[in-house]
Amino acid sequence: TEEYTYTDKEKADRAAKEWANRGYTVTVTQDGPTYRVRVG
C-alpha cells in the first residue's frame, strides 16, 4: 500500500482515476486541507 498526499482536490481525483484505470484499488480520504490517495 502506498499513500500520496495532495493539497489540490482536482489533482487527487486525477491521480485516483489514473491508478484505478491501471487496476489498483484506490481510496481517497480528506484530511483537513489535504487529500490522501491510498493505492493498493
Rank of each mutant, 00 (worst) to 15 (best):
E3S: 07
D13T: 10
K17P: 00
D31P: 01
R22L: 13
R38P: 00
Y24E: 02
Y4G: 03
Y6T: 05
E3D: 08
K9I: 06
V37Y: 01
T27H: 09
A16D: 01
D8N: 11
K9M: 07
E18P: 00
N21R: 14
T1Q: 11
A20Y: 09
V26C: 05
E18D: 10
T34H: 11
Y4T: 04
P33Y: 11
Q30V: 11
R36I: 15
Y35G: 00
D13Y: 15
R22N: 07
Y24T: 01
D8M: 05
K9S: 07
E10W: 12
A20N: 07
T7L: 12
T34F: 15
G40E: 15
T25P: 06
T34N: 12
A16E: 04
Q30I: 10
V28C: 07
T25Y: 12
G32S: 02
A16F: 05
E10H: 10
E3H: 06
V39K: 03
Y4L: 06
R14T: 11
A15Y: 06
Q30K: 13
A20W: 08
T25F: 12
R22S: 06
G23N: 03
G32Q: 02
D8Y: 05
Y6G: 03
G23K: 02
D13Q: 12
R38K: 10
E18L: 11
P33N: 14
K9L: 07
V39W: 04
E2S: 14
T27A: 07
Y24S: 02
T1P: 11
E10A: 12
T34I: 15
A15F: 08
E10N: 10
V26A: 06
T25E: 10
G23A: 02
T7H: 11
G40D: 13
T29W: 14
V39A: 03
R36W: 06
T25W: 12
Y24F: 12
N21Y: 09
E3N: 05
A15G: 04
R36E: 03
Y4N: 03
G32K: 01
K9E: 05
K17H: 09
W19P: 00
T7W: 13
A16Q: 04
E2H: 15
E10Q: 10
Q30S: 07
K11Y: 08
Y24W: 06
D13S: 09
W19M: 05
W19A: 03
T7P: 09
Y6V: 02
T1H: 13
T25M: 11
R38Q: 11
A20L: 13
T27P: 00
A16S: 05
T25S: 11
R36F: 10
R38L: 14
K11D: 14
K11R: 10
A16T: 04
V37N: 00
E18R: 10
Q30E: 08
A12T: 03
E3I: 13
W19H: 03
G40F: 15
R22K: 13
Y24N: 02
T27L: 08
W19E: 01
T34G: 06
E2D: 11
A15T: 06
R14S: 11
E2Y: 15
D13V: 13
V28L: 07
D31N: 07
R14E: 13
E18W: 15
V26R: 00
R14V: 10
T5P: 04
G23S: 02
T5A: 08
Y6W: 04
W19G: 01
D31G: 03
A20D: 04
Y24K: 04
Y24G: 01
W19N: 01
T29Q: 07
D13P: 00
A20T: 11
T29E: 11
R36Y: 12
E2N: 14
T5I: 14
A16Y: 05
V37T: 01
T27W: 09
A20M: 14
R22P: 01
T7M: 11
Y24R: 04
Y4M: 05
R38E: 07
Y6A: 01
T5D: 06
T7E: 10
E10L: 09
A20V: 11
K9W: 13
T7R: 10
E2K: 15
W19S: 01
A12F: 03
D8S: 13
T1N: 09
A16K: 04
T27I: 10
G23T: 01
N21E: 14
T5Y: 13
E10I: 10
T34W: 14
Y35K: 00
G40R: 14
K17L: 13
Q30N: 07
Y4Q: 04
N21P: 01
T1E: 12
T29L: 12
T7F: 13
V37I: 08
A12M: 04
Y35D: 00
G40S: 15
A16I: 06
Y35Q: 01
V37D: 00
K11F: 08
V28Y: 04
V39E: 01
P33H: 11
T25R: 10
D13H: 13
Y4D: 03
Y35L: 03
A12S: 03
P33W: 09
T7N: 11
V39Y: 03
N21V: 09
T27M: 08
T25A: 09
A15N: 04
T34Q: 08
K17I: 11
E3T: 12
R38S: 12
V39N: 01
V26P: 02
Q30H: 08
Y24M: 05
G32W: 03
Y35R: 01
P33S: 13
Y24L: 05
A20G: 07
G32F: 03
G40T: 15
G32V: 02
E3K: 04
T29S: 09
T34L: 15
G40V: 15
D31M: 08
A20S: 09
E18F: 15
